[in-house]
């Protein structure tokens, strides 16, 4: 009996304009960890072997093993490793619930400024924000001033791609005026 074939949310090749690239990130395990009341500390202790701790609001914590990003009220997403067993938390698989898009390059902030109602001056490395990508839900993680990882609902992947591409093409056309 053949195994079922996994498919990416989009399966599109990266797209580059104005030296800025939009790419679909490879599948990663994502586990939602929502500590039960008063348990955030014990979660941090359990994450210690991964060199991670439960992140404060609007932050992610990165280690050689993986990343854990604040993803909302009393909730964080663990990227990469499996969640430690027996956490005093609700643990839910979210790996397939999101499309992950990487936006990289000198115009990345300008692209976000067209779709995300966030003050990007606060977008320093290590930040993770819950906000909106135009009309879609968004978790955005800042790896670098020019490197952003965007998560939105997997079923909306095409719209997200399309809107990011539109924003970038408008910026590219503006840059063409100066050139």
């Amino acid at each position: 009996m053949p195994d079922l074939i996994a498919k990416p949310a989009l399966g599109r090749a990266p797209m580059t304009m104005a030296a800025t690239t939009l790419a679909e990130a490879a599948w990663t395990r994502i586990t939602s960890i929502a500590p039960f009341p008063g348990q955030a500390g014990s979660i941090s202790a359990a994450l210690a072997p991964l060199d991670l701790s439960f992140p404060p609001a609007n932050r992610f914590v990165q280690s050689a093993f993986g990343r854990i990003a604040w993803s909302g009220r009393e909730q964080a997403f663990l990227f990469g490793p499996e969640a430690p067993p027996n956490l005093a938390a609700a643990v839910t698989d979210q790996s397939d619930a999101w499309v992950m898009l990487d936006l990289t390059g000198p115009q990345a902030q300008a692209v976000l400024a067209r779709l995300v109602p966030l003050d990007l001056r606060a977008a320093t490395p290590g930040m993770a924000f819950r906000t909106a990508l135009n009309h879609m839900p968004l978790l955005v993680m800042v790896d670098h001033a020019q490197v952003f990882r965007l998560l939105t609902f997997r079923s909306m992947a095409r719209t997200a791609w399309h809107e990011l591409q539109d924003a970038l093409s408008g910026i590219d056309a503006r840059l063409g005026l100066k050139a």
Binding site: S32, A34, F36, P37, E74, Q75, A89, A90, T92, D93, Q94, S95, D96, A97, W98, F153, R154, S155
Partner: peptide, 15 residues
């Protein structure tokens, strides 16, 4: 009932 031991998350997109 914020103090209750209950957590929930949408998994509509997951499955």
């Amino acid at each position: 009932c914020a103090d209750w031991d209950v957590r929930f998350i949408s998994v509509t997109e997951q499955w």
